[in-house]
């Protein structure tokens, strides 16, 4: 008998709780409708269009993209444009859709990765060819501006010990490793082992035959740790990885462009960006090279500085603010 009463009380209580939750949700929903209604759009699910004269700078969900958005955005602000930021949005699949539908005006991109997204089969042979191939596939409302010299792409990186032993400097290329490779262990992600832009290409293009390959991660914590501890003597890292600067690793040059082109380039909506904005972005790209970007990345990711401060400081130092 007692059990029955208990369950009834329990049932009543949980029903009351459910009603409370429903009421709270309803109030929240009404509030949301009210606020979007005041925006004048009517449809709360329609994409938020940038207000006229307002430049919206978006970025992907990684530190370097956020930093680049701040650099380009602050350069626009310095020319008197009204700028707002939508940082850390997501992957290219998301951000490309947003700039296409007008939610974003400017988006920092990488020409090779953008081309691979628009046309996976393309095999460009120069940075300019990459730009024009990508531009040809772009949505008609969009435009690629001038690319920067700065690149964030795969690179063969050696640690200090290896560099000292085989006399490698910042001017050395991957080809200089050819005679020593058979004594070295290479680290990289598992897919690096079976890719043309990986172990296969290193052998066919540069004639590098490593002693062995250790499957780690794609330029992440494992590869960095293994290279630092000399468990591998060379590794596939990204050119703007701040550990390269921190651990004084040497990035080998890639004169035969095995790893393609990944220049930083602003992707913009033609109609929403005035000419002085285009000029401002091109002026930034003209000053930005890989060493500079690596240095700025280090300030943000290793020294934990605010990317906006790093961006304004750099713009000031090159006379663009």
């Amino acid at each position: 008998m007692g059990i029955v009463t208990d369950s009834r009380i329990h049932g009543r209580r949980s029903r009351a709780a459910a009603a409370l939750i429903a009421a709270t949700a309803a109030v929240a929903l009404l509030g949301a409708c009210g606020s979007s209604g005041s925006g004048g759009d009517g449809n709360p699910l329609a994409p938020a269009k940038a207000a006229a004269g307002q430049v919206v700078v978006g970025s992907n969900n990684f530190a370097e993209s956020i930093l680049l958005a701040d650099i380009y955005g602050e350069a626009l602000k310095a020319k008197g444009l009204k700028v707002s930021y939508k940082p850390n949005i997501g992957s290219r699949e998301t951000t490309y859709g947003l700039i296409k539908n007008g939610s974003l005006t400017v988006l920092p991109e990488y020409n090779g990765a953008l081309l691979a997204y628009l046309d996976p089969k393309a095999v460009p042979t120069s940075a300019d060819a990459t730009d024009s191939a990508a531009a040809a596939k772009l949505d008609p409302a969009l435009q690629l501006l001038r690319h920067a010299a700065a690149e964030d792409k795969d690179a063969v990186v050696v640690n200090q010990g290896t560099a000292a032993k085989y006399h490698l400097t910042a001017d050395s290329s991957i080809a200089d490793l050819a005679s020593a490779a058979h004594e070295l262990v290479l680290g990289g992600s598992p897919e690096f082992q079976t890719r043309q832009q990986g172990v296969l290409g290193l052998k066919s293009v540069y004639g590098l035959d490593f002693k062995s390959f250790k499957a780690l991660d794609a330029g992440g914590a494992l590869s960095e740790a293994a290279l630092k501890k000399n468990d591998v003597q060379a590794a596939d890292l990204f050119t703007t990885d701040f550990t390269i600067a921190k651990e004084k690793f040497i990035t080998l040059k890639d004169p035969k462009n095995l790893f393609g082109f990944q220049n930083v380039v602003p992707l913009v909506r033609k109609d929403d960006l005035p000419q002085k904005g285009v000029d401002a972005l091109n002026a930034v790209s003209a000053k930005l090279d890989t060493t500079t970007l690596l240095d700025l990345d280090t300030k943000v990711q290793a020294d934990k500085k605010d990317p906006l401060d790093v961006a304004t400081e750099w713009l000031k130092s090159v006379g663009l603010s």
């Binding site: 740790a225 293994a226 501890k229 468990d231």
Partner: peptide
């Protein structure tokens, strides 16, 4: 695993 790898190294 990842933590120990970064501390101890490959092994």
């Amino acid at each position: 695993l990842v933590l120990l790898f970064v501390i101890i190294g490959l092994g």
